[in-house]
Design a protein around this nucleic acid. Structure first.
Lengths: 135, 135
DNA sequence: TGTTAAGTTCGAATGGAGTCGTACTGAGCT
DNA sequence: AGCTCAGTACGACTCCATTCGAACTTAACA
C-alpha cells in the first residue's frame, strides 16, 4: 500500500532511474471479485466469447513477466469495444487489471482460477480459434 | 450384453413383451454436432446458464445407467422453456438426446467431452449452485 | 376411439450482451 | 500551456438469449 519508494537523491545529481514497479509498489487492482466469490457460470460466460477467449489464451501463452496493456493484443476493434471486453473479463474474475499511468494492464488470475476451477485454464490454453476470429 | 431375451413364446400366443431397448437397438440420436466439431466457446456458452449447469451436473452425479427424460430433473419451469434448454445443450454437443416413445431422454456425452475438453466435466460436477437456482 | 401426458412449435415480450461513434478524462511529454 | 495518446463514459443500435403461453403432435393406454 503506502510504499512511497523514496528515491534517495543527493540533491545534486538526480538519478533519473526508470523504476519498474516492484511487487511491493504495484498500483491497486481495479475492482474485482474475491477468490471465494468467483462463480463458475460467470467465468464460463466470460470465456464463451471468442474474442475474450483469445485474449486469455494469448495472455496464458505469450505473456511476459509483466502485465500487458490493451494494445499489446493487436485487436482490430474500436477502443470502446475493447474496454467492454476487458471489463467483462475483470468483473468475471478472469483477469486482474492495474492502472500504470495511462495504460491499464491485464494479467490472468492464474492462482485464483486454478484454486477454484482446476483445469479450466488448461482448456483455454489449448483452445484453437476458429478461422477468422479474435480479430 | 446382446441378450435378446427371447422370452419363450410358443408361436401362438404372441408374447407382449416390453423389450427395453438394448444398446444395439437404441433410437437414433437427435441431430448433434460431431465430436470433432465441438467448439469450446459454444460448450462454455451452453454451460454458462445456471439451469443448464445444474442439468449437466445432476446428470453427472445422479444419473442411472440409462438416459433420463425431461421430467426426471424436477425442474419447475414450463415445458417450452425446458425444450429450449435441453436443445441448447444438445446443439452445443454437451448432451445426447434420444426419443423413447413420448419421452426424449438425455445423457451427457462424457467420452466426447473428455476427449476434446479434458477436465471440463470435473468442473461441472464440482459446481456448487448458488442459493436459489436450478429451479 | 378417446384420453392422457411428454414434448414441440410458434409467436411475443423482455432483457441483456455485443458493437461502435463521439465526447471526455487524465498522464506524460515538450 | 498545449499536445498526444490510452482508455473510459455514454448513448444508440442491433441481435440474441431467455421466458412463457397457447396450440399442436404423437405415443401409450384403457
Amino acid at each position: 500500500m503506502s510504499s512511497t519508494s523514496s528515491m534517495s537523491s543527493t540533491a545534486n545529481e538526480v538519478p533519473v532511474i526508470k523504476v519498474r514497479p516492484e511487487p511491493e509498489s504495484l498500483p491497486d487492482p481495479l475492482p474485482e471479485p474475491a477468490v471465494e466469490d468467483l462463480r463458475l457460470e460467470t467465468v464460463l460466460g466470460a470465456l464463451s466469447d471468442p474474442l475474450r477467449l483469445g485474449i486469455v489464451r494469448k495472455l496464458l501463452l505469450e505473456s511476459e513477466a509483466f502485465d500487458h496493456s490493451c494494445g499489446w493484443f493487436g485487436l482490430d476493434r474500436p477502443k470502446s469495444s475493447l474496454t467492454h471486453h476487458f471489463r467483462a473479463l475483470r468483473e468475471a474474475g478472469v483477469t486482474r487489471q492495474r492502472q500504470y499511468g495511462l495504460e491499464r494492464r491485464s494479467h490472468v488470475r492464474v492462482d485464483d482460477l486454478n484454486a477454484r476451477f482446476p483445469g479450466l485454464l488448461g482448456l483455454v490454453a489449448a483452445w484453437v480459434p476458429d478461422r477468422a476470429s479474435t480479430g
